[in-house]
């Protein structure tokens, strides 16, 4: 397996998200939850204790009244390519980077729930299971067989639909191929987006729409200055939207973007 992945050039999966096409419908969020067997919220859960591997934030330009403009920004694990802040901090190797795909993976079965990785992540893309997972009676029949539900007390996050990657890989191996067919591996959020705002693909393959999107002049990445080389690229024609890539500024008499 290892020898095999050395033969083929490593993929670097990433996304390119067109913020100007996102209307904040939330399909990606529920599709993600369906795909990854994320339970519905318990009664006490809030937007700070929920499980949303991909979360669409409503941001605005900070102006008041008629000048105020909003945009929707889906934020998921940015799959940092370099010095991913969460990987090195995990005390028991529950976070890893797959060298063959560049995907930052999380093994909830290995996690003890110390939440150090959550404190480390500047994108707040990691989520903790504050409650025991619970589905209404009968609804557990609708769980995706390719993904194990997680238990209470562990951290989880986007893994670019590892179940789908695995299925695609299995199919490729069954067909005697070394590389998976890009059409077989599309994360649930990408598939669900009605407006086609999200593109997913191998950033190393210049022909993919994702790689092309990443190279657009109005493409940006969140907090690029941290040097973590995130693999989620955003595009927007609006200047104020592109400013969300930089550090926050408090609202003391200054114009700023906030959510």
């Amino acid at each position: 397996m290892i020898a095999e992945s050395k033969k083929t050039p490593a993929a670097r999966y990433g996304m390119s998200i067109d913020v100007d096409r996102c209307n904040g419908c939330g399909s990606c969020m529920v599709a993600c939850a369906v795909e990854n067997n994320i339970p519905p919220a318990t009664a006490g859960a809030t937007d700070r204790t929920g499980l949303t591997w991909i979360r669409v934030f409503r941001i605005d330009n900070g102006a008041e009244g008629a000048e105020r403009r909003s945009a929707f920004v889906p934020v998921l694990c940015q799959h940092c390519g370099k010095d991913a802040p969460c990987v090195s901090v995990c005390p028991q190797q529950a976070v890893d980077v797959d060298p063959a795909t560049g995907i930052v993976g999380q093994m909830p079965e290995r996690c003890l729930g110390c939440r150090y990785c959550m404190a480390a992540c500047p994108y707040h893309a990691r989520y903790f299971n504050w409650w025991d997972p619970a589905w209404p009676a009968g609804m557990e029949k609708t769980l995706n067989p390719d993904v194990s539900p997680r238990m209470r007390g562990v951290v989880e996050k986007c893994n670019f639909c590892h179940g789908r990657w695995h299925a695609a890989k299995t199919k490729a191996v069954a067909n005697g191929k070394t590389e998976i067919d890009p059409a077989d591996y599309i994360p649930a959020c990408v598939e669900a987006c009605p407006s086609g705002a999200i593109h997913f693909g191998n950033l190393n393959d210049a022909a993919t729409e994702t790689a092309q999107g990443a190279r657009l002049p109005n493409s940006f990445r969140m907090l690029e200055s941290l040097g973590t080389d995130p693999k989620i690229y955003y595009q927007s024609k609006k200047n104020w939207v592109r400013e969300i890539s930089s550090a926050p500024r408090p609202a003391v008499g200054k114009e700023k973007a906030r959510g």
Partner: peptide, 11 residues
């Protein structure tokens, strides 16, 4: 450390 926002649209 945890109270301070990192993303510009964080609170």
């Amino acid at each position: 450390t945890l109270a301070l926002p990192t993303l510009s649209f964080d609170k």
